[in-house]
Amino acid sequence: MTDTNAGPFAGPGPEQHFREGLEAGEYRLQFCDDCSKNIYYPRAVCNHCGSPNSSWRIASGKGTIYSTSVERTKPEAGGDKNIALIDLEEGGRLMSRVVDMEPSDVTIGMAVEAFIGEIDGTKLILFRAA
């Protein structure tokens, strides 16, 4: 059997490292040591090649809208909200929200930049127009 006390799986997992980054004001990205790709979202094994070996870098925060929609909601329930899929400059795609602009003005291909925001007390990555 493998010795699990050392090696790539030792200690806290990648999710905790990512969330600690958000608390510290850092958007941390995990890159595979074997295939060099961005493992997004962070995982215990690379979703591209299965490798358990990875390293962390700070994200540039630059992204492009891959798809976008507006959740139509009554004003008394908070009004219309943007929700979008964003491709990161480093590779990888996430669901998030583009804020500080008209929800319907967000378009596919638009440049956006990440910032660390909060929804219901949970720190997470949000975007604004670049």
């Binding site: 059997m1 493998t2 699990t4 006390n5 799986f9 200690g11 806290p12 997992g13 990648p14 999710e15 905790q16 995982r43 215990a44 094994v45 090649c49 299965g50 358990p52």
Partner: peptide, 30 residues
Amino acid sequence: TEFGELPGKNHLEVLAEASHYALADAGLGM
């Protein structure tokens, strides 16, 4: 994987770790 308490890990991280070991044991990749 190790047993007991695995602080700072989520359930899929543990599942992936065990899977990695089993596949390595079989000489296979993910």
